[in-house]
Design a protein around this nucleic acid. Sequence first.
DNA 1: TCGTGTGAATCCTTTCACAGCC
DNA 2: GGCTGTGAAAGGATTCACACGA
Lengths: 179, 179
Amino acid sequence: MSSEELGRRIDVTPEQIRKDLAGFGAFGKKGVGYHVTELLNNIGSILGLDRRWNIAIVGVGHLGWALANYRNFASMGFHLSALFDQNPAIVGQSINGVEVLSVADLERTIADRNIQIGVLAVPAGEAQPIADRLVAAGLHGIWNFAPVRIKVPESVQLVSEDLSVGLATLSYHLCRQGR
Amino acid sequence: MSSEELGRRIDVTPEQIRKDLAGFGAFGKKGVGYHVTELLNNIGSILGLDRRWNIAIVGVGHLGWALANYRNFASMGFHLSALFDQNPAIVGQSINGVEVLSVADLERTIADRNIQIGVLAVPAGEAQPIADRLVAAGLHGIWNFAPVRIKVPESVQLVSEDLSVGLATLSYHLCRQGR
DNA sequence: TCGTGTGAATCCTTTCACAGCC
DNA sequence: GGCTGTGAAAGGATTCACACGA
């Protein structure tokens, strides 16, 4: 498939596709284009999606529950290894064959199950304390869904999903449009 | 508060803060800084957060449920006006005082309640058909959480929350770091 | 012939530096 | 004296254009 066709499908210019890919290597064939399966493998390997990451979700409210059932995780090499909640009514239940543990077991379980990534699906007030515990337990990455800015050491990767950004974007463009 | 202090808090250079704000008007006082409450009001008004938006959530699975309970909506002027699901076991229940309606009532309710923004929290396969119905019903914006690329007319604002981007980002940086 | 990979040119954003107002 | 708003300089990113290999 050519960069032209790839670009059309995701609304990006062909030059952009070629430059971006060329930054990581020469994946195309001149006069032919890109071999799609090969390209997917290469991109997966660049992103580290060809290895296995063990993740834990902290906070099994509706959001945590939804994330635990997110099917795309597995296909990207993410393996749901543990679920934590502080609510005794939820602890002991199973989602997708994974039992919900008490947050008291956080540190021990992270070490035992070799968990590298923690997902924060807890209320805003709990986010920083839990993040601190995750970091102390030796995690390398945190995916934060709590609507607060949390702090972690430089050595820990932090990605925050801030839903208010999406809403503000929508609101702004609707206003521009005169709605 | 000075642009220096504002910048420190959100990890942005002071020049960036000043340039960005200046693009929309002169909100600061020379030698003094920015009046925080005033600034918040101005930014809110730029983003259109000072008016009221009526939103509807389609798909009341765990994700839809979590979104329906997201408290920050209200503070940004977003009013949850309707919930839709196709599952008869869920239709009729109430969340936050809003009753879950059948998707059959989609078009009528959107018109009746003057809904401008639709939130897609449905499975991937349902996203495009529902989006089409929302657009036909006269919505102006769609906030998509389904893990598919959907198409809407130019005149409709579309914001998609693609969770796989966050995960890939985390994975990539962890790899770079040699984890 | 076709389409990649890439220097060169263009465009846009960020940083610097400072005049001007509080 | 302090800090904004903003031209000018620097730095990046995108687009153009084409040599070269399949």
